[in-house]
């Protein structure tokens, strides 16, 4: 079947989203996954953006930004950051979210801020990065506030790291009960959906292990693309391919095909 890794990742992420959830969606793949889920199996999904755009669906293709006119043409309410990120997310009210990551570590901590040759934690100094990324945006708020959330990331060794350069958004910190001790209202990441498979946190250690891999890859390849010693579930299985129906619904959201080209 003809589909891209990104499309596959969006469909698998969409399958994790449940009907009725109050969900905050970032632009790009997260929005695609969310609106795919709504049209596929979650008709009562309640998506909103961190700008406080409620009740809307994208028109004319995936939005360029979470406040783009493509997501502002049929909204039922426009509010603001205090409302969306404060009253609905930091308060602990939102059920779910989908966020992206440039780097993610084995405890689901995310870096979207910068890449350093010598990261701050290693040298004990905060010097300018070699590459500046975007900063956390609302993902940091989601990581502490949402009841649960999903992480999407491209599965490469330089991105799936033992320890990220900079923690922009917290996952399970150093594992075990280290997150719980911080007292965040939100529950932490439920899964990492990568371009190769699905990773889940171990209930005790909170280390992410491979639960399932995509049909076009192997366990060996997934391990080779992971910087930490990735543990494999005893029941590990290949994820079933997207159905024609699923792809059709996905592409009805991504009408301009922005995610149909491979990166």
């Amino acid at each position: 079947m003809d589909y891209t890794k990104q499309e596959f990742m969006a469909i698998i992420t969409g399958r994790e989203i449940k009907d009725g959830e109050l969900i905050i969606l970032g632009v790009g793949l997260p929005m695609l996954a969310g609106y795919f889920a709504r049209s596929n199996h979650a008709p009562n999904l309640r998506p909103f953006t961190e700008g406080g755009v409620y009740g809307s669906s994208p028109v004319g293709g995936l939005p360029w930004g979470i406040e783009c006119n493509r997501i502002s043409a049929n909204a039922t309410s426009f509010t603001n950051a205090i409302d969306a990120l404060g009253f609905l997310v930091l308060s602990g009210r939102a059920d779910n979210a989908v966020i992206g990551a440039a780097q993610v570590d084995k405890y689901g901590n995310i870096n979207t801020t910068g890449i350093w040759d010598e990261p701050p934690w290693k040298v004990g100094k905060y010097l300018p990065p070699r590459v500046r990324l975007n900063g956390s945006g609302g993902a940091s708020d989601i990581s502490v506030g949402c009841k649960s959330y999903l992480i999407m990331a491209s599965h490469e060794k330089r991105r799936f790291m033992e320890k990220v350069d900079y923690i922009s958004s917290v996952g399970f910190l150093t594992g075990g009960d280290s997150r719980e001790k911080c007292g965040f209202v939100g529950g932490g990441p439920a899964a990492i959906i990568s371009t190769l498979g699905i990773l889940r946190p171990d209930p005790q250690t909170k280390e992410f292990y491979l639960e399932a891999y995509f049909p076009f890859t192997t366990i060996e390849e997934v391990k080779a693309c992971t910087d930490w010693d990735l543990k494999i579930s005893q029941d590990v299985k290949a994820v079933h391919e997207p159905t024609i129906e699923e792809l059709k619904k996905l592409r009805a959201v991504d009408v301009t095909g922005s995610l149909r080209k491979e990166d």
Partner: peptide, 8 residues
């Protein structure tokens, strides 16, 4: 750097 919610 801060979070977006922090800036608000």
């Amino acid at each position: 750097d801060y979070s977006n919610g922090a800036m608000a």
